[in-house]
Computed example of a mutant assay.
Amino acid sequence: MDKATATTTTAPPRTDTFAHAHAVAGVVVAELGETQMPFALELEEDFPSGWRIHLKFRQSRAEGLFAFAALVDVPVTRAVLEYGIHLEALVRIEDVEVRGSALVSPDVAAQLEGEPTPVDPMPMPEPEAAPPVPLGASVLAAVPAITHVEVADGGE
């Protein structure tokens, strides 16, 4: 009998598994170290792009975001929102999307980006308080404090 002469090749290991994404997250966090560690890490599957890791940094440790961006050699982008500055770095590591983000104040963003602290162009003046009105001259002086209410008898 003839044997099959075709060679068999093994498929490369799948990298779109939770275990793989978890391992990538572990390596990234270990590289950042204790002082640059994010306060939260989300690991989720997104069809069709695969697994995603989201490293969340607090304002007090936002320098960890910049350490992450330097580690993977990507820029930190910014978006000005009404409640602060959203900073983000995004990269793909071994088929896993890894994103780091932080929401910081404009002062902290300027400090992290090496810019001078922003100054308000024109401070708002304090509103002038209205002079007090004596209670006898007030509209409330003409309104009785207690109003008599009559309750109708239910016919009982």
Rank of each mutant, 00 (worst) to 15 (best):
30 A>G: 11
21 A>S: 10
96 V>C: 09
108 V>N: 03
3 K>P: 04
112 L>R: 03
36 Q>H: 15
57 F>H: 04
10 T>N: 06
137 A>D: 15
104 V>D: 02
68 F>T: 01
17 T>V: 07
79 A>L: 08
42 E>C: 00
47 F>G: 08
101 S>C: 05
127 P>V: 07
81 L>N: 09
30 A>Q: 14
64 G>F: 01
141 A>Y: 08
31 E>S: 12
11 A>F: 01
129 A>T: 12
41 L>C: 07
130 A>D: 11
66 F>Q: 00
144 P>A: 09
34 E>K: 15
149 V>S: 07
91 V>G: 03
58 R>N: 08
18 F>Y: 13
28 V>K: 00
3 K>S: 08
63 E>A: 14
95 D>I: 04
1 M>G: 13
7 T>S: 12
136 G>C: 10
61 R>G: 10
82 E>K: 12
56 K>S: 09
125 P>D: 13
9 T>S: 10
13 P>Q: 11
80 V>K: 10
49 S>C: 02
90 L>P: 00
26 G>M: 04
116 P>S: 13
54 H>G: 01
103 L>I: 04
143 V>K: 09
86 H>I: 02
64 G>Q: 03
128 E>Q: 14
5 T>K: 09
103 L>E: 03
117 T>H: 09
49 S>H: 04
131 P>D: 12
30 A>P: 01
107 D>A: 12
118 P>W: 05
116 P>I: 06
63 E>M: 11
8 T>F: 11
119 V>C: 04
75 P>S: 06
102 A>E: 00
97 E>H: 13
34 E>S: 15
60 S>H: 10
89 A>I: 05
1 M>P: 09
154 G>V: 13
64 G>E: 01
74 V>T: 06
88 E>H: 03
100 G>W: 00
127 P>Q: 06
121 P>A: 08
138 S>C: 09
78 R>V: 05
3 K>C: 00
145 A>H: 07
69 A>M: 00
144 P>G: 03
57 F>A: 01
6 A>V: 11
54 H>D: 10
78 R>S: 14
49 S>F: 08
90 L>R: 12
141 A>N: 12
33 G>V: 06
102 A>S: 10
104 V>L: 06
26 G>F: 04
146 I>Y: 12
